[in-house]
């Protein structure tokens, strides 16, 4: 999945819910500036919400940072996340409910990642060094049109 990824600038935030709306707002402003139409921005927001809430909720036991970066290449908007929390690849499993299970037994936790995989052009996970330490590095590409 070798997409072009021009170097954008990482923005660093506390991985906490009180920063959530600010991070979303910054990313959506960058998408707007890149010319992404409203309909695609809603899809972008689905991915943003899913990954960001995941990092804020689960990456760290006692708080930490999240890095967010956006860039544009070949008519694709690239949204990247990095954190220094426990190694975790959210793309590893399709956690969507099993249609054969009765309603009461379905596990709703995996809807989000399933939708991200469906709506985004490409997604990629790497565990690599970013900002001076090993990091969960998640990249999501969404068509600008």
């Amino acid at each position: 999945m070798a997409q072009d990824k021009p170097e954008g600038t990482w923005k660093c935030y506390n991985a906490a819910m009180d920063r959530y709306e600010e991070i979303c707002s910054n990313v959506l402003e960058e998408a707007e500036a890149a010319g992404m139409p409203q309909k695609q921005q809603l899809r972008l927001e689905l991915g943003l919400e899913e990954i960001l809430v995941n990092i804020i909720s689960y990456a760290y036991d006692e708080g930490g940072k999240v890095w967010v970066r956006t860039s544009v290449a070949d008519n694709l908007f690239c949204l990247e996340f990095a954190d220094h929390g426990k190694p975790f690849d959210p793309l590893q499993k399709d956690l969507r409910h099993d249609d054969n299970l009765p309603l009461e037994e379905r596990e709703p936790g995996g809807f989000g990642i399933f939708l991200v995989k469906k709506y985004f052009h490409a997604v990629e996970y790497k565990y690599e060094e970013i900002a001076g330490a090993m990091a969960n590095h998640l990249s999501l590409w969404l068509s600008l049109q």
């Binding site: 809603l42 899913e50 809807f111």
Partner: peptide
């Protein structure tokens, strides 16, 4: 707009209603 957090709300309410 409806995200997976919204889907979870719908599922919880459906279970409650049932």
């Amino acid at each position: 707009y409806l995200s997976s957090a919204g889907l979870r709300v719908l599922l919880r309410l459906k279970k409650l209603a049932k």
